[in-house]
Simulated scan of single mutants.
Amino acid sequence: MTTPLLCATDLQRRHGETVVFAQVGLTVQAGEFVAVVGDSGVGKSTLLNALAGLERLDGGAVHLQGRRVDTLPEEAQALLRREHLGFVFQAFHVLPHLSVRQNVALPLMLLQRPDAARVQQVLDALGLGSLGERLPQQLSGGQLQRVAIARALVHRPRLILADEPTGNLDPDTAAQVMQALRQQTREQGAACVMVTHSPAAAALADRVLRLTRQGLSPEARPT
């Protein structure tokens, strides 16, 4: 049997005495696109952060390509994120003093693998091809969101984690972004886990899972 690209078992997270979620299990194969939906405050962003090693867990285990990663030392987790993860943050985290092109190129520069052609390819795929020299303050919210997504995709990560990637976009731009995410996931043989409130975005995933305090369960698709 093929080893899943991502396997999370019995994940638990608490804030003090309050249980955010428990008994969360998630297995994602290479090339698979999974959407996670759920009520506000149930811990969807917390789950993504925990999968990335950005937030500690109170129980459970996370394996990436068969290797347990949640117990790695902090420095080793940071190196793993740099090499193998692409994270689309809800708050963008675009660096204001760098141009669009420089922001998108940053993961490749940190890996010491500069690739101007790859940067331009991802910019073009997200409709940013002519905006490479602009600074973030010259962009709309939707354009900033696409810069953040391009930066997450540029180094061809094995695991893409996307927190509301279409949350600030108009329907046409949202569809373009979702197409790029799906295409990159397929082409790279990556796994993508996306948190979303958008039914239209969730409908494009291979599977939709609903997060509650008791774990993840399959969401019935509209008939």
Rank of each mutant, 00 (worst) to 15 (best):
L72S: 00
A205N: 03
A30D: 13
A52S: 05
I160E: 00
Q145L: 06
A152Q: 03
G167Q: 07
E74I: 13
A125Q: 14
A175P: 09
A125Y: 04
H15S: 03
S99Q: 01
G43V: 03
R207W: 03
G215R: 06
A174S: 11
L161I: 04
H97G: 06
L106Y: 09
M109I: 08
A220R: 15
P114R: 11
L54N: 03
F89W: 12
T9E: 15
L98A: 10
P4Q: 12
V88H: 03
A202W: 11
S40N: 12
P136K: 10
Q179E: 14
A180E: 08
A180P: 09
A78N: 03
R221N: 06
A203F: 05
V42N: 05
R81S: 06
G38K: 05
Q77S: 07
P4A: 09
T223F: 08
R213I: 00
A8D: 12
H15P: 00
L47Q: 09
S198I: 00
T2F: 06
A116V: 08
M194P: 08
R146I: 08
C7R: 15
G167E: 08
Q90R: 13
G189R: 02
L144I: 10
L131S: 04
V34C: 02
D10G: 09
L204K: 11
R156W: 08
V37K: 08
L6W: 15
L48D: 00
R156T: 08
